[in-house]
Write a protein that binds this DNA or RNA. Structure first.
Lengths: 123, 123
DNA sequence: TGGGAATATCCTGACGAACGTATATGCGTA
DNA sequence: TACGCATATACGTTCGTCAGGATATTCCCA
């Protein structure tokens, strides 16, 4: 998919990327916090790390998120090239599901993280 | 899924319904014309009728469209209960893909239909 | 009541996606 | 250089989904 342009197929690919609860929860977190590292998301969702990584790879492949390495951590943020579409869809959807138990729980667990990795704060 | 409420899972189910080129093309047509019967959409997309019916059933199951029988025809329109979410997502997405060859071709074939079924005009 | 058109459903096979586990890579530090 | 932490990828399995064709259902009209 070429950034900037959108055809039916790439729109479908992006919809498919959004059609998974784990990926939607990840995006909700990233959308709220700007940038997060994998260990934070792993902790927030309480799921195995490979699973989180794999889902992030899916989001990365359709260019909804981008990754940035900082020391031994990898930070994920929204792909700003896709922001026009993504921000719209995400805003509309998150507004409807922000009270969902899973979404709320994720936010709580992330907030309750005792020692958050260093690079995640020096943005 | 209960109409009106939205949790993560139902949001994902709706995203999944939007993650197919045929269903996106069908929604683009319905969104533009308000209500269409199956034979019109079959003609517009130039695909086998069972295929169209099956995809419409998927959209119906997640309550994105509703059906209404009129004589021997069945008319499909957007489910107005889902309109808040659907209209937003659809508007954002269609704006990006309205120039896609498939979308343009569908609209042309529909417009070029010599004899459109009667009930589709008496709305 | 019988025929034909419009629409929906059933069946089977094939492909892709998700999972869990194990393993590899990259970076900092001793 | 060796070790440990953070992250990514490979592998094998399972499961849901899509396609295509055949068939069933519903309705109108003669």
């Amino acid at each position: 998919m070429t950034i900037g342009t959108m055809d039916v197929d790439s729109a479908c690919a992006r919809m498919a990327a959004l059609s998974d609860p784990i990926r939607l929860r990840l995006l909700a977190l990233i959308h709220k916090h700007g940038e997060l590292c994998v260990c934070e998301m792993t902790h927030a969702l309480s799921l195995p790390q490979p699973k989180i990584s794999k889902h992030l790879a899916v989001l990365r492949n359709v260019e909804l998120v981008r990754m940035r390495r900082n020391a031994q951590w990898v930070l994920y943020g929204l792909e700003h090239e896709a922001a026009a579409w993504l921000d719209g869809v995400l805003a509309i959807t998150l507004r409807d599901i922000e009270t969902d138990a899973a979404i709320v729980g994720d936010a709580k667990r992330l907030a309750g993280m005792r020692v958050r990795p260093q690079p995640c704060r020096d943005k």
